[in-house]
Design a protein around this nucleic acid. Structure first.
Length: 622
DNA sequence: ATAGGGTTAG
């Protein structure tokens, strides 16, 4: 599955504004006549002024000056004007100017490509690149790294390989920047072998190339490789890491859920004086939250002077994950008061908060409000959140109706699988077999999450007491050759990671204690008013269960994102995913830590790279 | 004159 979010790059945007890109309109009427004539003496001055111009009005008046000066057919000054339009992100005018140039050169082409990427239209950059040979324009290193950058935004490894081949053929494979773009592109296309091959082939490297490679690992859920490379960087390179690199390293720690590494990185950040950087601090807040330390997370967030929409959104989600819905809503209100405009991710975050705090109606109100007041166009991901929100609370019919009403295109099946997957888990949670069957059918047909679709359907049958079907589905899995990775959970105690498998009896020597604690926690939850759901645990006692996903049928806990508690007989263990840190879990942690320290062997944690948003938990008092 | 790296959901 693609780790990266492509939507943020607006790859599918076709609306180019102002009547469309290809509709050329005469620009002259908009350009004010200037009384100051431009002579060849003032040409240099003209260029100097344009070099850092970001104001469109200034650029427009410069344009009219250029027209009057009679130099408008010259490539050099016109390229400066073109760049100024690009800097203003006015691609319509930039492209118009480009079209009017008698002799655009490689710089004109490259600038225009770069502008399109910055404006969110990487496809346009690639079409320009493809058109260049027709005009007998030969790409240079600047053009090639720009083209690779467009492929990176699209995560289009095939296009990237074509450009890569050109690079090799024309001897640009020694160029530092070109290589760095290649590493970035392969990393974002999830081809780490190719990325590493480029990295290893480089004769010289700088901070940017190291960062690109480290980030390649971090973005592909290979946190340990990222940290390993960071260590190597520190060993080999004399210069200290900068904020870019450290932001990537913190991200790697977050994805591993390994507090010890996160804290060590935090120390490096403080030492280097990068703590005040917003992106770094936001990464730290995210890391602490994912490592289970919401207090530190909030502290890191509060250290940001004027948080932008990204840290606010991040913190809203983190608080919600820890069950602090009120904090999420307070943060949301706070950002609105400060005049910070929520974006589409913020709305996902706030829906996520409603979903995980059981506030369905509030979530639905917000949904209407965001459409009417903020003009947000709902996309697949928002709908997935809503399906999840309704489903968790048992409003399965509404969730189902919504899911059915959404048309999922072939190219969005990965995202679509999240929607149907959410519906499937909700069906299992509430024992809605017929919906579970349809959802898993969708997933199997789309070829998405097939293994868990089977297992979840089988478990739904078990919840409904339909043991025969449950078994039948398992046999079917064997028959069609589908198997699932063993479900596991892990916890970090004093810097070591302990891994627990579902139904791995040998790994829980004190299961009686654990089970009685779980039962006790369940009781206390009920006392707090969490109703519904069977509080008993149900298992499918088949041989392969050890390889199955964790089954947890403490449904209310699941429903509230409270943390999975898992399976007895095989007598398990504790899952601390999304646990509410602030309440009873303290006690659970203590027990677990005493058990693991005395009786457990550290497992091979490297196997668990692929758990991207590790929810392993740890506190300092351990 | 034009090129490369970082944070947020599921």
């Amino acid at each position: 599955m693609a780790v990266r979010d492509l939507d943020t790059h607006r790859t599918n945007r076709v609306d180019l504004g102002e009547g469309g890109l290809w509709v050329t309109k005469p620009l002259s009427p908009d350009i004010k006549k200037s009384s100051i004539p431009v002579t060849s003496d003032t040409n240099t001055q003209f260029i100097q002024q344009l070099q850092d111009a970001k104001d469109l009005n200034f650029v427009l008046s410069s344009h009219s000056k250029l027209l009057k000066s009679g130099f408008s057919n010259q490539t050099f000054p016109t390229n400066h004007l073109l760049n100024a339009y690009v800097r203003c992100q006015n691609m319509r005018r930039a492209h118009q100017l480009f079209d009017e140039m008698p002799e655009p050169n490689i710089v004109s082409w490259t600038s225009l490509m770069g502008g399109y990427i910055a404006a969110g239209y990487p496809m346009m950059a690639l079409s320009l690149f493809a058109e260049m040979p027709k005009d007998f324009i030969v790409p240079n290193a600047f053009t090639l790294s720009t083209a690779i950058n467009a492929c990176a935004f699209l995560a289009d490894v095939n296009a990237g390989k074509v450009v890569h081949a050109y690079i090799e053929m024309h001897g640009y494979q020694k160029n530092l920047v070109v290589c760095t773009s290649l590493i970035d592109m392969y990393g974002k296309s999830n081809d780490l072998v190719a990325a590493r091959r480029v990295f290893d082939s480089m004769l010289e490297r700088n901070l940017v190339s190291w960062t690109s490679m480290i980030n390649g690992y971090a973005q592909n859920a290979r946190g340990y490789d990222a940290l390993e490379l960071f260590k190597e960087f520190n060993r080999i390179q004399p210069e200290p890491p900068n904020k870019f690199m450290l932001a990537c390293v913190v991200n790697a720690c977050a994805s591993l859920g390994r507090l010890v590494y996160g804290r060590a990185t935090h120390a490096v950040i403080v030492k280097g004086g990068h703590e005040s950087n917003e992106v770094v601090a936001c990464g730290l807040a995210d890391m602490y939250a994912k490592c289970g330390c919401i207090e530190f997370s909030l502290k890191a967030f509060r250290s940001i002077r004027n948080p932008s929409v990204v840290p606010y959104t991040s913190m809203i989600v983190s608080a919600a994950k820890h069950g602090l819905g009120e904090v999420s809503f307070d943060l949301f209100e706070e950002m609105i008061c400060k005049g910070i405009r929520p974006n589409h991710v913020t709305f996902l975050g706030i829906l996520y908060a409603c979903s995980h705090c059981g506030l369905v109606d509030k979530g639905l109100d917000l949904l209407t409000w965001m459409q009417t007041r903020h003009g947000v166009v709902l996309d697949l991901k928002h709908h997935t959140c809503v399906v999840d929100m309704l489903g968790r609370r048992g409003r399965l019919d509404e969730a189902y109706r919504l899911a059915k009403s959404i048309v999922i295109q072939k190219c969005h099946e990965i995202e679509g699988a999240l929607l149907w997957g959410a519906l499937l888990s909700a069906s299992r949670l509430h024992g809605r077999l017929e919906i579970a069957a349809e959802a898993s059918k969708w997933l199997v047909e789309a070829g998405q999450q097939v293994d868990s679709a089977y297992v979840t359907l089988s478990n739904t049958c078990a919840v409904a007491g339909n043991w025969d079907d449950s078994q039948r589905i398992r046999s079917q899995m064997k028959h069609v050759g589908v198997s699932k990775e063993p479900g596991c959970s892990w916890v970090e105690v004093k810097g070591s990671v302990y891994v627990f498998y579902a139904r791995d009896v040998s790994s829980c020597p004190r299961s009686d204690e654990v089970l009685s604690l779980l039962k006790d926690l369940g009781e206390r939850m009920k006392e707090r008013g969490y109703v519904g759901g069977s509080s008993g645990s149900v298992f499918v006692d088949v041989e392969d269960e050890a390889k199955e996903e964790m089954v947890s049928l403490h449904s209310e806990r699941l429903a509230l994102g409270f943390g999975l508690l898992s399976i007895p007989r095989g007598e398990t263990i504790i899952i601390m995913k999304n646990l509410r840190m602030c309440r009873d879990c303290h006690e659970a942690f203590k027990l677990i830590s005493s058990i693991v320290e005395r009786d457990f062997v550290v497992r091979d944690v490297n196997r668990f790279h692929h758990f991207r948003n590790g929810s392993c938990t740890c506190r300092d008092y351990w």
